[in-house]
Amino acid sequence: MNRVLRAALFALVVAYLIAPLLVVAGVSLNERQVLFFPPQGLSLRWYGAAFTDPSWYRPAINSLLVATFAALIAVSIALPLSYVVWRYRVRYAKAVMAMGLAPFALPPVITALGALALWIVLQSYGRPYTVVLSHGAFLTTLPLATLTVGLQNLNPQLVEAARTMGATGSAVFRTIVFPFVRPYLIAGFVFAFVLSLNEYIIAYMTVGFTFETLPVKIFASLRYGYSPVMAAISVLFFAFAVVVFAAVGRLGDLPRLLGADETD
């Protein structure tokens, strides 16, 4: 297709994805507690506030804890599941797989309402572990997707060769399958981690303000009092995501992790 058209389309998409963040970054630099763009005066004090004001760093720590454990749970579900579906012929495995992929085929608000209903029935509403478990199950889809791609790329003849040489099932897993899918496992963990860190509606409906996560905190200040700290935190979030994904891209083959074929 036409070179100029292509450049224009790429520029449009990049500008569209970056413009809101540029304004947020500008707003975060205001000297006084105002949300002007272009900023008035230049100051980094709101970035300092994000790390020193407990009403901001506590939710940040909560979010990091939730994201770490939720991503571990997501991976702990996805790894055995994708392996069994790939390796064995088990009839109900496909049904379990469907449950793991289904959350992304549901409007997010329904998943959140389901979590709220579940934890109310179990009389655990508001406990920190509820958001960890609900995030874990919801985000299983991501490692499940990356691991399925990874296992598809693994040559089954390798496994058969190992078996004919007398390797047991667990030896095959340890020496061939696991090392091969490790990058896909890490990518799946990272995706789940970053999405949990940013997830709002499930966190709001399971723990809300009793175990405030960062998105819940940001939303609350969006409604009850703007502050440039919100902008500073948003910039830090975006920067963190860029650094993490850029690192994944440096260490692994990002196009392949996302489902492209062998290197061309």
Binding site: V14, L17, I18, A19, P20, L21, V23, V24, V27, L35, F37, F191, V194, L195, L197, N198, E199, Y200, I201, L214, P215, I218, F219, L222, M230, A231, S234, F237, F238, A241, V242, F245, A246, G249, L254, P255, L258
Partner: peptide, 22 residues
């Protein structure tokens, strides 16, 4: 791809905030 992934992971809350500013 890095930009797309980072945008995808951006909280809906931050997106709402950013666009309300923009």
């Amino acid at each position: 791809l890095v930009l797309v992934l980072a945008s995808l992971s951006l909280s809906e809350v931050i997106v709402g905030f950013a666009w309300s500013l923009l």
